[in-house]
Design a protein around this nucleic acid. Structure first.
Lengths: 237, 237
DNA sequence: TCAAAAGTGTTAATGATACACCCATGT
DNA sequence: ACATGGGTGTATCATTAACACTTTTGA
């Protein structure tokens, strides 16, 4: 290959391939009280030390969704999480190292199953969603867009269960909705609505070792839900 | 520059910059009866002759939204159209020339103002949304995603007016909603709802030269709507 | 005078909201 | 026995859905 070819190649790079693609994941969790988001500290100027979402470049032979799953798997050790693409951020100056267009996703994690790995390259921290500090890059915008989307989605799709343990009480479920929507709900109306939809399975088991009347445990099974949805059920909370 | 540098450069290309970004626009229009979508014919194998959305590569110094506006302007001659980003499509094999990740947008055009330019590089055609043939690339998926989004958006945001002439009748507005939602609506209930929201301005003018009782003309002003929204109005149809 | 779309209210059904007390357990 | 959250039903209000006839114009 001689210089002329190089110049052609470099010209092409300049013209078409000077953009890198990344994926950024907003990872939501729920600890039984608060809605949380997982973040790491940025090690790149000018955002050194600022908190940042988990993200990485997408390689040329990698699907976007696969890249998102990879990030979740590499950094948090989870597979097959609920994942939804939200929005693509492409402002010129959004990344200090050059033109990086970022496809954002949010993901839902059962924190009860989450074992914080101490041997990961970068330690991560769960932040209360309402107490997040100033973030690196345009990650505040990304976080806001994902939280907005989650709030809409959770009202019309049964995805909240991805944040709860397999067996949960109705109060836990209500509390989760209150944390996501940032709004109090009426206990009786909430229970009426969700039990009337008929997709919750009564586990015939109860909470143990709680200093009050133990609550009935329920579980959510996608199969059962799908069957009901197919016969006309409309989920709405 | 000698060969070693070349190899480094090429390696970098291979590693990070082998992905091109494009924008594809679903351009919706309304001719008074049907919801339409603007498309062109593909001149690239293996999709030669198939119909395709309007799209182009994003240049490295160009915002995504700006690229979308540019495409609309270059190809259709419009500026400042309503535009919404919908989803990013990034499957490995979606484009025959290599890895191209496409950010999709939909846009709303007043067809009444649209003068089909005959001197454009590629002639475009308005298709009835419900009669679109097999499309090039993954454009069917993109179209479906954009139509879905439009259907949701139009129920909770006053964006339908972007498809109507400045002055329109209530029947035209209803017809537009029926075309978008693909569903008949009750005339009296529709009128009650939309007039009760109070943001339509009566033009005190009427249709002319129609072979039936002429309908009252209304207009939509964003200012008025914003004021009402600020004082608590919730748009919903 | 006919055809075609404009315009207009009421009733019934459904869904949403508001609200207070007794129950079972651990300490 | 007390503190804590679990669990339950009804009445009111607001919203939605269903429905038919008269009016105005051009042909």
């Amino acid at each position: 290959m001689h210089d002329q070819n190089i110049n052609v190649a470099l010209k092409q790079i300049q013209d078409y391939f000077k953009i890198a693609i990344s994926v950024d994941c907003v990872i939501f969790g729920y600890d039984g009280k608060e809605l949380k988001v997982l973040m790491i500290q940025c090690n790149m100027d000018p955002y050194m030390g600022k908190w940042s979402l988990l993200g990485d470049l997408v390689s040329p032979d990698e699907d976007l969704d696969v890249a998102a799953q990879r990030i979740l798997n590499e950094r948090v050790g989870f597979k097959n999480l609920y994942l939804e693409q939200v929005k693509t951020f492409g402002k010129i100056g959004r990344h200090p190292s050059g033109r990086v267009i970022s496809v954002s996703y949010y993901s839902l994690v059962k924190m009860s199953d989450f074992i914080p790995s101490t041997n990961l390259p970068i330690p991560a921290k769960w932040w209360n969603i309402y107490e997040v500090e100033e973030l690196a890059f345009d990650h505040r915008q990304i976080l806001d867009a994902c939280l907005d989307r989650l709030r809409k989605r959770v009202r019309y799709n049964p995805i909240g269960f991805n944040l709860l343990p397999k067996e949960f009480t109705l109060s836990q479920l209500q509390n989760l909705y209150e944390a996501i929507l940032n709004k109090m709900l009426d206990k009786r109306n909430f229970r009426k609505k969700i039990t009337a939809m008929g997709f919750l399975t009564d586990c015939h088991r109860y909470q143990k070792e709680v200093a009050h009347r133990p609550a009935r445990l329920f579980s959510f099974e996608m199969k059962k839900y799908n069957a009901l949805e197919a016969s006309g059920l409309i989920f709405e909370l």
